[in-house]
């Protein structure tokens, strides 16, 4: 089987946001879109090296868009009604759309809700079935304290990203291995290794 390479990995949290400026309207994006976009920008990949329709995006949102859903719904009784902008972000795939717009990526996209264990398999499938030459994998975890209470889980505000390619982009590219299936621990491992070196 042909090899697949990891060109870069990143992890970002809410504390990385204040200094981030990705496009004129970054402030309008919901938190999950901001974190996902920042995680991708942190990979520092020159996507212009690829034809735009040969790059895919696979994203998983651990709690869908529930935090933005609740923000939108909390505005329902105000004069003028709830925010149209927030409604546009009540979809986990809004983050995929923002990444596609910011980097001009027109290839196929996938967006899942859950723990993200399928993400790398699906990105590899897009590359192996020759739909794309490279594929972003992003895992967004945004759970406000209010939503955490509703779903009885911990709150979170983080995103991690990987860029997988058919060919090694640089000598730093690392081959994707058989057991590299789960995006979160893989990003953590690669980012820890990078900061140690």
């Amino acid at each position: 089987m042909n090899k697949i390479f990891i060109a870069a990995a990143s992890i970002v949290t809410e504390t990385d946001l204040p200094s981030a400026r990705l496009g004129q309207r970054f402030g309008r994006l919901d938190l999950q879109s901001q974190l996902a976009l920042l995680a991708v920008a942190s990979l520092q990949i020159d996507f212009a090296k690829f034809p735009p329709d040969r790059l895919g995006i696979c994203l998983v949102a651990s709690a869908g868009s529930l935090t933005t859903d609740l923000n939108f719904w909390n505005g329902r009784s105000g004069v003028g009604g709830p925010s149209p902008t927030l409604f546009a972000y009540t979809l986990p795939s809004a983050a995929v759309g923002e990444i596609a717009i910011h980097f001009g990526l027109t290839g196929p996209d996938l967006c899942f809700v859950g723990d993200g264990t399928e993400l790398i398999t699906e990105a590899v499938d897009l590359i192996r079935s020759d739909k794309v030459d490279g594929c972003l994998c992003i895992c967004g975890e945004v759970i406000s304290t209010e939503v955490a209470k509703i779903i009885s889980g911990p709150s979170a505000a983080t995103a991690c990203a990987l860029f997988l390619t058919r060919a090694a982009l640089s000598p730093d590219s690392r081959e994707l291995r058989e057991f590299d299936r789960d995006i979160k621990p893989l990003c953590a491992l690669l980012c820890a290794a990078k900061s140690a070196s």
């Binding site: 309008r28 105000g78 004069v79 003028g80 009604g81 925010s83 149209p84 902008t85 546009a88």
Partner: peptide, 15 residues
């Protein structure tokens, strides 16, 4: 989308 958000602002703040 901003145009729609301005519509909300006009109603909320100026009636």
């Amino acid at each position: 989308i901003d145009a729609l958000e301005l519509v909300v602002l006009l109603e909320k703040d100026y009636g």
